[in-house]
Nucleic acid binder design. Structure first.
Length: 490
RNA sequence: GGUCCUGUGGCCGAGUGGCUAGGCAGAGGUCUGCAAAACCUUGUACGGCGGUUCGAAUCCGUUCGGGACCUCCA
């Protein structure tokens, strides 16, 4: 990609401002995104975040960066809450269902991969698991203890937030002040071990009935909530890397703790650019596993949910997500998705007609400003909705050329076609929907359309309309045009 | 209670101190045997009240509403 297109700005949550993106190591970019906790099916809200970062990954690659994209799988479970004495979620579910913990992990990891593949997300380069990096996590804890910023109590190790804050700034990412945090803390059971309620566990002593546990210098236990991301990002991307992403709800305490841990262990600030994707809302509230206010991708693809008027293709959902900026909340409604579906189809039909356009000796509308506008949109903090708007400008142009109301040279068409295809398929990650992939149905439809055509030529409107109406009842829409008759499933 | 975000036309959703966002729906048109589809045209909206300014929906104050985080959560 040409250098002039490479002036990407990213909104850095750490500074609260858009900053020009400059990788730490020349052409290489390290990208870490917090992955899912695999104790239940991913819901659509989770997917939004991963789709947004898929866009980031894709655009960075389009700009010619060599990206290493790391996204973890949290399979060690997180604490249910402070009151349940450290039982982790995966272990709890395992007991309920009489399954091995890793069986649960496997089931939902597969679901996660299948779902993201349906959304046409590219897999990350490395997808490390928390359980596979216990040793790295123990080593990091030892580093932090050696620096005097963590302490052991009864086989558990806690990070000393106040001590860290004496020389560093705990709260720099989330904008919190430690005094406010202390005053706002509620006194909960099971926190008596901690020197301060703000301290968080790096290692947790495991009760005998706890299923997932590992030996450590402090006894049998399991790693703390936030440590895995620090250990794995350090291992695969280094002590300092470029971009760390995740959902807005992870900003505090998860990412704040990551900064503190990483900084404590290595003496360096781990992340140059923090990116936070906003929530997908349903009924005006964030989707959430714990409150049940969510929608599963499978329900969306099948239409099997009362909130949905019909089923939606994963690509329609992806397009819907691309029509909102990643830092804004996006409200999910069946109506909004239906609107997105129509727009998506219009865009894709225009893109497909690119290859059939007739070229002329001259170009009526210069294409360079249009193409530049694609880059300007994405360079401005990955503004996909602006990009989509500009692509619809291109749709208008394509249709005008198709109608003979505008013209384009072969040379310009080649360039335009290449760029539009790159932005639509490679960057936005959209795919065409194959309605007509059932070959036997296609054959039958060929015959039916041919019979209807014959009837129409004989002005036998009764027969032709009967065919049309019957097909409509069967969910197949007939589309007549000058070039002939097409059909589509409704 | 603390910290922060947000309120845009029927719906979703960008953006900006003065210059059309875009999509969908609606309206009109072209096409068509009639329709549908497709395509073209079309909408001066920015929560209320003050203030700053030549000019604000965009900045400031205030007020009302919505939301996020402060406990696991993308």
């Amino acid at each position: 990609m040409e250098a002039q297109n490479r002036n990407l700005s990213i909104y850095n949550s750490l500074s609260g401002e858009k900053e020009v993106f400059t990788p730490i190591h020349g052409n290489f970019v390290g990208l870490y995104v917090c992955g899912p906790t695999v104790y239940s099916n991913v819901h659509l809200g989770n997917c939004r975040t991963f789709i947004n970062f898929d866009l980031v990954y894709r655009y960075l690659m389009h700009l010619g960066y060599k990206v290493r994209y790391v996204r973890n799988i949290t399979d060690a479970g997180h604490l249910e809450d402070d009151a349940d004495q450290g039982e982790d979620k995966i272990a709890k579910k395992a007991k309920l269902q009489q399954l091995e913990p890793m069986e649960i992990v496997q089931q939902y990891t597969v679901d996660f991969h299948d779902t993201l593949a349906a959304f046409n997300n590219l897999p990350p380069n490395i997808e490390p698991t928390a359980t596979g990096h216990i040793i790295e996590q123990i080593e990091m804890i030892q580093e932090i203890i050696a620096k005097g910023l963590a302490y052991e109590v009864n086989g558990s190790v806690y990070f000393d937030v106040e001590k860290y804050n004496a020389s560093e700034n705990y709260g720099e990412l989330s904008g919190r002040k430690i005094e406010d945090l202390i005053s706002g803390t509620r006194e909960l059971d099971g926190q008596s071990e901690k020197r301060s309620p703000l301290d968080f566990a790096l290692w947790k002593n495991a009760a005998p009935e706890h299923i997932m546990k590992w030996p450590s210098p402090w006894g049998i236990g399991f790693p703390g909530w936030h440590l895995e991301c620090s250990a794995m990002s350090t291992k695969y991307l280094g002590e300092e890397f470029d971009i760390h992403g995740g959902g807005m709800d992870l900003k505090f305490p998860h990412h704040e703790c990551e900064i503190a841990q990483g900084h404590a262990a290595t003496g360096k600030k781990p992340v140059k650019y923090w990116m936070h994707a906003n929530m997908l809302t349903l009924n005006g509230k964030k989707m959430s596993k714990s409150t049940g206010n969510n929608l599963l991708p499978g329900e969306l693809f099948s239409g099997n949910n009362d909130l949905l008027e019909k089923a939606f293709d994963p690509m329609v959902v992806r397009f819907f997500i691309m029509q909102a900026h990643y830092r804004s909340t996006l409200d999910f409604t069946s109506e909004a998705l239906t609107a997105a579906e129509k727009g998506f189809k219009r865009l894709m039909e225009a893109v497909q007609s690119l290859s059939k356009l007739k070229t002329s000796a001259s170009t009526s509308t210069p294409i360079t400003p249009l193409i530049n506008s694609f880059y300007e949109a994405m360079n401005d903090d990955f503004n996909a909705p602006i990009l989509v708007a500009k692509l619809f400008d291109a749709v208008k142009l394509i249709n005008a050329i198709n109608d003979g109301k505008a013209s384009i040279t072969q040379e310009d068409l080649t360039i335009l076609s290449k760029e539009i295809n790159a932005f639509v398929f490679d960057i936005l990650g959209l795919k065409t929907i194959n309605d007509n992939d059932d070959s036997s149905l296609s054959k039958v439809m060929e015959l039916v359309i041919d019979m209807r055509q014959t009837a129409r030529e004989n002005k036998d409107w009764t027969t032709s309309d009967k065919i049309r109406d019957f097909l409509a009842e069967a969910g197949i829409q007939i589309k007549d045009s000058k070039e002939g008759t097409n059909w589509t499933k409704i």
